[in-house]
Design a protein around this nucleic acid. Sequence first.
DNA 1: ATCAAAATTCAAAGCGCTTTGGAATACCGT
DNA 2: ACGGTATTCCAAAGCGCTTTGAATTTTGAT
Lengths: 358, 358
Amino acid sequence: MNLKQLSETLGLSQTTVSRALNGYPEVKEATRQRVLLAAEQSGYRPSTRAKGLATGQALAIGHVIPISSKHEMVNPIFGDFIAGAGETYAQNGYEMILTTVDDAQEEQIYRGLKARRAVDGVVVHGPRMDDPRIALLHDLELPFVVHGRASGATTAYDWLDVNNRSAFYRATSFLCDLGHRRIGLINGLETMDFAHRRRAGYAGALKDHNIPIDQALMTSGEMTEGNGYDGTLEMLASSAPPTAIIASSMISALGVRRAIEERGYVMGRDISVITHDDMLSYLQNGQDVPIFTATRSSVRDAGRRLAALLLRRIANPAAPEQHELLEAELMLGRSTGPAPLQAPLHISPSSPQKGPHP
Amino acid sequence: MNLKQLSETLGLSQTTVSRALNGYPEVKEATRQRVLLAAEQSGYRPSTRAKGLATGQALAIGHVIPISSKHEMVNPIFGDFIAGAGETYAQNGYEMILTTVDDAQEEQIYRGLKARRAVDGVVVHGPRMDDPRIALLHDLELPFVVHGRASGATTAYDWLDVNNRSAFYRATSFLCDLGHRRIGLINGLETMDFAHRRRAGYAGALKDHNIPIDQALMTSGEMTEGNGYDGTLEMLASSAPPTAIIASSMISALGVRRAIEERGYVMGRDISVITHDDMLSYLQNGQDVPIFTATRSSVRDAGRRLAALLLRRIANPAAPEQHELLEAELMLGRSTGPAPLQAPLHISPSSPQKGPHP
DNA sequence: ATCAAAATTCAAAGCGCTTTGGAATACCGT
DNA sequence: ACGGTATTCCAAAGCGCTTTGAATTTTGAT
């Protein structure tokens, strides 16, 4: 069923039917109702393509998901973020077009999206330090918003970010106030902007508590269980092991916990742990009382809001830049406690296992 | 830059330019080169919409992701699956359109996709028992393929599935052969078709080893860390606890491990664990030696293959149904060992923790 | 040189929608 | 009843591409 057929059925012109459907005022109310009913009954829906051609809009948003070509890794927050953004799009009649791409082809993809007029705007995921995409999209005049920020960008742009710096500042301060002086940081890849900010928050808090920074207590890498495990094991093996560890994601934190327990320590008593928690739907941090003390911020909510930001930008290209800085909550869980008075006894691990990742 | 402009630049008709670009034979080779070069230099790319309108193809594939309206959960395998499918689409010039939807609106979404001619075909995710989507899509005459199978479907359809039954049969048999007689199953939601098949494999193996089925050793639910933990704790607390547990996903397995260790048992010695491993990029099962013994099958690879299946279906709507049944490998890891000669001593847990999810 | 066949190019129609510029009809006060 | 204004509807153009059917040029054989 297309417009022509529908209008013939009704004995009206395509113009009138189109206007009735799109809510224009120059059509009699009775006629509109008649059209609406007929459209409903026949299941008529305008062709996306034809409509897009006629209006010049794509009614679609592009999400270009970078997949680290080295580790072939898909960011685990991705599913929940998309779910959030999808809600917003659905409410506004937009479609979501997904492209996965490794870093090398990124520029091509954005240029293609623009040249083919496939989308009205894009969401930039996982901004890196001095991310070249900002300038590129700016030059292409393709509306975009960034999930996170890209330090070093020379042009203004719309973004939504968690206040990573303050979150990690608070987490670190909280541990300091509990008496911890040796605090480890299992960070994400520091080419990523957010990891950079988190470290700044961590370092800032240590400085404010007059605690020197120890390179041996900082690792960075992809946020996998394995890296959390490896990093923790390494720190624990050092001559001056930490009494607390901050992890950058729930996934790494699971590895941190595994290493701690495998070494025979008790999390929350011998070693305190704080993690950042994106509130992924399949990895909930406890039901009532959180297992992990965590800096918490819903990535799904971020998706919803960021999508809204983009739609606003598209509706009004000349508006001033929009920014949204979400503060993470510090949720108290069972994984933190006062610093042990002395270095924890090193109980021999209950399991002789000592190996790679789960 | 559009076709008209490009053709004027070249002093050729739109027809010729279009044909040169699309590889038709009726254009002189020298002309084609000239056109190709000009297109390259000017960055010309045909408008997706215009092309789609003219050809009647959408050059897009729809993925409709069900989000359990109850738990608001996004399946964690989703990201990797999409990454795989995306590779195939990119190679073939297709776009991926993503829609997230809760069960109630599913039908509407598919009808909309069809009526608006937004996609050339769709991938059905997470088929349930007697899934109504199969019949619906069949009626709509919208080409589709299914990731998994839907028992009870009355029409033939294309699918790609892991042989869940044989995988869980082998895992269970393997444990039986190691002497285990009380084997727990932490299954996915049994409204899901795959969970049903897995239980059938598990039950079949027990039967073949003359081991009665014990309802107390079977749980099912969303595959979260928390459910893995809760289920395990419950089984371990029973009067006749299992000596081995099979988990339906790495995420649940992490919960299983937490419960085991929290109770003071050693995984692989006191309690054996086998999990299904989808080879998610951020949850690798060890580097060299797997942590968990696992039935392994790459969901990313499944995405790649299933997408190819769909493109073939679209190219040839009348072809006979295509099926691909992938066998999971049984990877030996550190989490399994011979059944303890007697019920494991119940060492008091090293941690007094006893609580909800991690 | 000549003419049919092959190779190359083009003008125009059409895909399904929106939107412009009118045309037709209804309504108002006088 | 009449001119004028609102209201309601419509024909046709246009969005950027592909494709049909025809025109033009080249080629090859005589």
